[in-house]
Design a protein around this nucleic acid. Structure first.
Lengths: 138, 138
DNA sequence: TAATTAATAGTAATTATTACTATTAAGGAG
DNA sequence: CTCCTTAATAGTAATAATTACTATTAATTA
């Protein structure tokens, strides 16, 4: 696997993002530094980086995939169904959970996704204030 | 929300499936009993049922969504990247985890997905026998 | 039993992602 | 350092999953 400027740039964008970007938003950021990078290149490199275990993919129903850096230890995510923001959930100890699942079920685990969705603190307050009950769960 | 024969049928197909079906495979099963049900109706009702909290949606990267009944207590999933089978992971106690995340992060949780992916026992053996190292992680 | 309108079937449109192909550029050999 | 091989790229076309649209059907309510 060759080291290219495109791959390095995409990796650095994911590593420095704290907002769990999509392929599209990574593409937008990449174009600032490399104006004629193509979207296909972004997708191909994101797939490669996930396969190499250097970044993480998050699948969210009703949306495209999101990507996450691998700076800290493995963690979970909370996704707000209203404002679509993400929160890292760090208090769950993922590693022993993986070890236990591997051992009890005789499986080899390469990836995990511990995610919760609902309404974030901000949207809960907004919801009450606006008496907006149209929570759109998808 | 009106009660229709289509909605009832789709709900019963999901409840009685133990293979975590996709919208497409639910559509196939539905057509056996109701030959001119439309795929759009299947999608709309699956969304409604998820929103009502009567069934669960699983997002798997590189594939369409899968659906799961809500018979037993909340559980996790393991997804084999090779044969694409699912295993229910029942030993993880999801409910206290949700309660803890809600309390510590001030969020309201309506859905969760605790999932792992890798290689299932059968594919591990096959892999060794065939010396096939082309594990396609996606 | 009729009136209202949500849900449906069938189809078209949209969105995310992958596939394809001619061209470019990594990186190893000489 | 320069040439050669071929993996990776840009740009575009194609695919797959899902949603949107619209005339028609059928659930509920009066």
């Amino acid at each position: 696997m060759r080291k290219t400027a495109q791959k390095t740039l995409i990796y650095e964008i994911v590593q420095s993002s704290c907002d769990h970007p999509t392929a599209e938003s990574i593409y937008m950021k990449a174009r600032v530094h490399m104006p004629n990078i193509s979207l296909g290149t972004v997708y191909r490199n994101l797939n490669d980086l996930v396969e190499m275990g250097k970044i993480t993919r998050l699948s969210i129903p009703g949306e495209g995939d999101h990507y996450d850096h691998k700076m800290r230890k493995p963690h979970g995510h909370f996704y707000c169904q209203i404002c679509k923001c993400f929160m890292d959930i760090e208090e769950i100890d993922v590693e022993p959970m993986i070890a236990s699942v591997e051992q009890k079920n005789q499986v080899k685990i390469y990836a995990n996704q511990i995610s919760f969705s609902g309404v974030c603190p901000t949207c809960q307050i907004m919801g009450k204030e606006e008496k907006e009950n149209g929570i759109k769960r998808k």
